[in-house]
């Protein structure tokens, strides 16, 4: 949920409206905010699944330190979404991290 009015910070100033493609669905975002903020605002909690046990992970540090929030962004895996600005038309996919030595790939392929 977005915080519009705030007793101390006032009204939120946001950039231009943009649209992200997240796992094939359109998600509204604002220019200038990071990908994770837009995804959390849209109600998403799971950002990736771990390699061995396919456990879900989401935002943990929001500072770019823990790498729990990594996703595949425009084809590139392991992008820390909490410190990466959202851009119009970005294609974002839930990431499944593979075991060491194997390439990281996306959920769709996993299902095939």
């Amino acid at each position: 949920m977005r915080i519009e009015d705030h007793p101390i910070l006032g009204k939120a100033e946001r950039g231009k409206r943009i649209t992200l493609n997240v796992d094939g669905e359109a998600v509204a975002a604002f220019e200038g905010e990071n990908i994770a903020a837009a995804l959390i605002a849209s109600g998403r909690r799971v950002f990736r699944y771990t390699a061995k046990r396919m456990e879900p992970r989401g935002v943990f540090c929001a500072l770019g330190r823990c790498t729990d929030c990594v996703m595949i962004v425009d084809g590139q895996p392991d992008v820390r979404t909490c410190v990466t600005p959202a851009r119009d038309g970005m294609v974002i996919q839930t990431q499944v991290s593979r075991r060491e030595g194997e390439a990281t790939h996306d959920l769709e392929k996993e299902k095939d």
Binding site: M1, R2, I3, E4, H6, L9, A12, R14, E33, N34, A36, A37, I40, A41, R45, V46, F47, E55, P56, R57, G58, V59, F60, C61, A62, L63
Partner: peptide
């Protein structure tokens, strides 16, 4: 490790900088 468990500082960043509720 479940999504939804996060640092308090992470929460502070989300609400005061990103202006979204976790």
């Amino acid at each position: 490790t479940l999504p939804g468990v996060m640092g308090a500082g992470a929460t502070q960043t989300l609400i005061n900088i990103n202006r979204v509720l976790p």
